[in-house]
Design a protein around this nucleic acid. Structure first.
Lengths: 205, 205
DNA sequence: GTCATCATGTAAGCCGTTACATGATTGC
DNA sequence: GCAATCATGTAACGGCTTACATGATGAC
């Protein structure tokens, strides 16, 4: 989950931990919510696995801006004038490696999509190919259809004596249906190969 | 969370752990999802706290049916012919105590309502009074309004280059608005004092 | 000179899960 | 007799949070 978020963000820009968190929050809003206490260990874990690589910098250098340049190229130049392994202003700027890119695709495609994981995956959908996207969307829709069924069974089985539970389940049913319809639209768009996915209002079928 | 679920269910019927889980699933559908590995420890915890009390029974006795009779009354009679403290058919039938009822109300009113807690609370809304219900509903609505704001900020801040993130955030906005409207209806109903939402009030007859 | 912010980490704890262990009862 | 289900529990681990520790930098 958190590794997916990290890799997804680092695929676009090289950042250090502190920035990463802000970036995540800015880009994904309330959908992401990592704390430093899990972010830094996760970064170290990923570094040990070779999925990201860090460069300890001395100056404010290459951070906020989405870089196009290669890290291993010029950055190696001033890697020499790093101060010590610890302490701030020795920011550890992380970049994704090839291993990391493979891991990202793996994380996107493989694991079971529970409630909260799917949103995160969707946020990084651009990093996997259309067949995988379609497969994920359809699996998600199937899961929601199942959930809908179960909620309806539960609704039917009730003696209807509690209006709050009733209201809760009815709203859950409606929300789930709305989600399913939304997924249906995404699937249709994906199938149509319409690359202007962003178009919401008018436009093409 | 799990304690709330347990106490909420036990307030209506005396059950043993195994039944409790099934009951929970049947009544709340996909909204509840406890595993035995957390259920039994939680029950023991609650028993230690005096929030529930267990009677180890020998026969199939008072389980599935929602009982109206008092546990401490007749049940004490055949408490004597229990076999041993362990092993099935020595089911531990749990009932809520006064301490437990107070704890239930406390759990309903007090804690911060994160995403997933609120649904559970709402499911047991009948066990708290109207002012508390209103307060909870309004707090929840306020939280969702904040979330809505943040999502919209994030939406506005984007350079609009990723259609998937865009779709995700737009859908999140719509879902949140729908939730807010739903809460609005619940609040209105609550304010109107519409008691087709079942008479609960303070004391039991 | 002190306060807010930037920056990186560790430690403890919470709340749940899966997997395992154990055994009784029921149905065939 | 054997499998499925009922019934209760323990152990290990997972993934996250909060709180703590540390220190540099910049603004005033």
């Amino acid at each position: 989950m958190i590794e997916l978020a990290i890799l997804g963000i680092l695929k676009e820009a090289q950042l250090h931990g502190y920035e990463l968190k802000k970036h995540l929050r800015k880009v994904l809003g309330p959908l992401s919510n990592v704390s430093f206490g899990s972010l830094y260990p996760a970064l170290n874990r990923l570094e040990r696995q070779g999925a990201v690589s860090a460069v300890v910098t001395d100056d404010a250098g290459p951070s906020t801006m989405p870089m196009t340049g290669s890290l291993t190229g010029e950055a190696a130049a001033f890697r020499s004038r790093l101060r010590s392994t610890r302490g701030p202003r020795n920011k550890k700027v992380y970049g994704i490696t090839e291993v990391g890119e493979r891991r990202l695709v793996e994380l996107l495609s493989d694991p079971a999509d529970d409630e909260r994981t799917f949103g995160m995956k969707l946020a990084f959908f651009r990093w996997c190919d259309r067949p995988t996207r379609l497969w994920l969307l359809e699996r998600r829709r199937a899961a929601l259809l199942e959930r809908l069924e179960e909620t309806r069974r539960a609704l039917a089985a009730r003696e209807g004596d509690d209006p709050y539970v009733q209201a809760l389940m009815e709203h859950d049913t409606e929300s789930t249906m709305s989600d399913i319809a939304w997924l249906g639209r995404l699937i249709a768009r994906e199938r149509a190969g319409d690359d202007r996915t962003r178009e919401t209002t008018g436009g093409r079928p």
